[in-house]
Design a protein around this nucleic acid. Structure first.
Length: 357
DNA sequence: AACTCGGGGTC
DNA sequence: GACCCAGAGTT
């Protein structure tokens, strides 16, 4: 056993957090946890993991559910393709693998939603395959300790970190080794204000020795964000129902539901909304009865969404909309329909402020 | 290799 | 406001 793995595993045994997916070696549960934790902090994913496992106990239950149910459990977590891919892969595992997860990293890699990181994580934890994981934590820890200066996120960086970790991995317990490096990155070797003072590698760390801790790993330039303007219409149809539509393919929030949307290069004023076809489609001009007082500013990785919500009074001929893209449905708050965080925020605000209307 | 896909915690 | 999180799929 080399010095690095001995020290990091000892540190891990003393400092690791008590997390539910560390109580099992069930590939299904490890898989669920790894997908949830993609680009997601442990604190944020924890409740979702508990809910997901409670609702879908095993891969067969997940395979038997419809996608809408899976998306509903995922609602608010973001990167919804993870949920769609999991559902797809669950069905494939049941049909092609008789419900038994593949064991090797190579086989796992062929499943939708499972990339290099997740394949290595599942294989090393569940099957003791000695393959290193390379995630944001591992890149940071290795870049600092060993002075890897390749820009984070590039294949050069990935390959150098992978080679280093591959040479140091504990071949008897690769799963614990991998989790130890990640946990160390999450708790000690943090992006900002790392705990170098009490770090077990402070005498060996390249970055610490060269005062480069704040410059490693080398970060890539900030991405630009596209601005978009969404004017949403809460159209009350009658009987407590409202018009809804499903998000299109190839855009954000694919397959989630939302209110009728007018996207333009600005947020629409009341006059523009009144003149809009959606508002007049019932045959006569309907009345705008409310607008949320403050426009929303919803920030995604590559987009800034400006949003405004109008509430429009009762059509009695909602059936007219069934022919188009719109559907007459119960308020999504009641039905648990999968909606974006933006829509969810508005609906909750409305429920708390519009009781009299 | 570059882009896109969410949402939120942290500094 | 910038950064970045137990990344993956598409182009």
């Amino acid at each position: 056993m080399n010095d690095f793995q001995r020290k990091i595993i000892q540190w891990y045994n003393l400092n690791k957090r008590d997390l539910p997916w560390r109580q099992t070696l069930d590939p299904y549960r490890i898989w669920v946890s790894e997908i949830i934790l993609q680009q997601t902090r442990v604190d944020q994913g924890l409740a979702y993991y508990e809910r997901f496992i409670a609702r879908f106990h095993d891969v067969r239950q997940l395979a038997e559910a419809d996608e809408q149910e899976v998306l509903s459990v995922w609602k608010g977590l973001g990167y919804y393709s993870r949920a769609r891919n999991m559902h797809h892969t669950a069905r494939r595992i049941v049909q092609e693998y008789a419900g038994v997860f593949p064991e090797t990293c190579h086989q796992l890699l062929r499943l939708k939603g499972i990339g290099k990181y997740t394949a290595a994580a599942i294989a090393s934890i569940c099957s003791h395959e000695p393959v290193p994981v390379v995630d944001g934590n591992v890149v940071r820890v290795f870049s600092r300790i060993f002075g890897i200066e390749a820009m984070a996120g590039t294949t050069a960086s990935f390959n150098k970190v992978w080679e280093r970790s591959s040479a140091l991995i504990d071949r008897d317990d690769p799963g614990t080794y991998n989790q130890a490096v990640m946990e160390f990155g999450a708790l000690c070797c943090k992006p900002a204000n790392p705990g170098c003072g009490q770090c077990i590698f402070r005498n060996d760390c390249f970055a610490f020795g060269n005062q480069m801790v704040d410059r490693l790993p080398v970060k890539k330039k900030e991405i630009s964000r596209r601005e978009r303007w969404f004017t949403y219409l809460y159209v009350r149809v009658g009987g407590g129902k409202v018009l809804m539509q499903q998000r299109p393919q190839g855009d954000i929030w694919q397959n989630l539901w939302e209110l009728p949307l007018i996207e333009a290069d600005h947020l629409l004023g009341p006059a523009e909304v009144s003149a809009h076809p959606v508002v007049n489609q019932g045959g006569e001009l309907e009345e705008i009865i409310a607008v949320n007082p403050k426009d929303y500013r919803h920030i995604l990785t590559h987009q800034i969404i400006h949003a405004r919500f109008y509430e429009i009074s009762g059509y009695q001929t909602g059936e007219a909309f069934e022919a188009g893209d719109y559907r007459v449905m119960e308020d999504p708050l009641v039905t648990g329909l999968p909606v974006s965080r933006l829509t969810d925020r508005y609906l909750h605000w409305r429920a708390g402020n519009m009781q009299g209307l």
